[in-house]
């Protein structure tokens, strides 16, 4: 398959959105970044799936974001508690860039393993890497859930290219929503703990 320069547009969007998600301390911006990520996932999946099926990913991702956003109540929940100091942000930014660079460099090797066009290989890889980084850097339930959703969305990009089963797509959507609902439940418990 010939790679078109426009194919790299969702990769750029996914890199910016996942970096934003990694760096943002404000939950509203985090949910917006998650929504942008799912737009990029939809864009990438669109090249192999019909619009109707690809839209499932977008709608599910946005619903997951909405569920998480709705579960954060009051001013206490407005900020995700990682220390918003300059060094922390700089550290996260450099790590995020390293992940993007690493994925870009190893993508030809992964191509031998998975028959996926290079831009989408990079896009999915960035999501997987950023998701794992997000999970590894925090103990906060919201950030862990955002990391898991990012990781899974990267895998969904890969899997869309190798398996076109509607049933698997449906189940993955159920799992995405399930993780978001579980995140909402955990956030609810956390909010109760803060209010008590």
């Amino acid at each position: 398959m010939r790679t078109n320069i426009i194919d790299f547009a969702p990769v750029i969007l996914v890199s910016i959105a996942s970096l934003l998600l990694l760096l943002q301390a404000n939950w509203r911006w985090s949910i917006i970044a998650l929504s942008l990520q799912y737009i990029a996932v939809f864009w990438m999946v669109l090249s192999v799936w019909p619009v109707g099926l690809a839209a499932v990913k977008l709608v599910t991702g946005w619903m997951a974001g909405a569920v998480l956003g709705a579960s954060i109540t009051g001013e206490e929940g407005l900020r995700i508690s990682f220390k918003e100091i300059f060094q922390e942000l700089r550290f996260r930014f450099v790590l995020g860039l390293l992940i993007i660079l690493f994925v870009f460099l190893i993508s030809p090797r992964i191509n031998n393993l998975l028959p996926i066009p290079n831009p989408f290989l990079i896009g999915g890889g960035v999501l997987i890497g950023m998701g794992l980084l997000q999970i590894g850097l925090t103990k906060e339930p919201l950030r862990v859930v955002l990391g898991l959703l990012t990781f899974l969305s990267g895998f969904e990009v890969y899997y869309a290219f190798i398996e076109r089963s509607v049933m698997v797509a449906g189940f993955l959507s159920i799992i995405t929503l399930g993780i978001a609902l579980m995140g909402a439940y955990l956030l609810n418990l956390q909010n109760k703990g803060i209010s008590e």
């Binding site: 339930p141 398996e163 799992i175």
Partner: peptide, 25 residues
């Protein structure tokens, strides 16, 4: 409160899904 162990349980079990699906393929 939510404990680290429960979050890790969720993370590790979820990480298994892609690998099993890819293995099947």
């Amino acid at each position: 409160e939510i404990t680290d162990g429960v979050l890790r349980f969720l993370v590790f079990q979820t990480l298994a899904v892609p690998f099993i699906l890819l293995a099947g393929w």
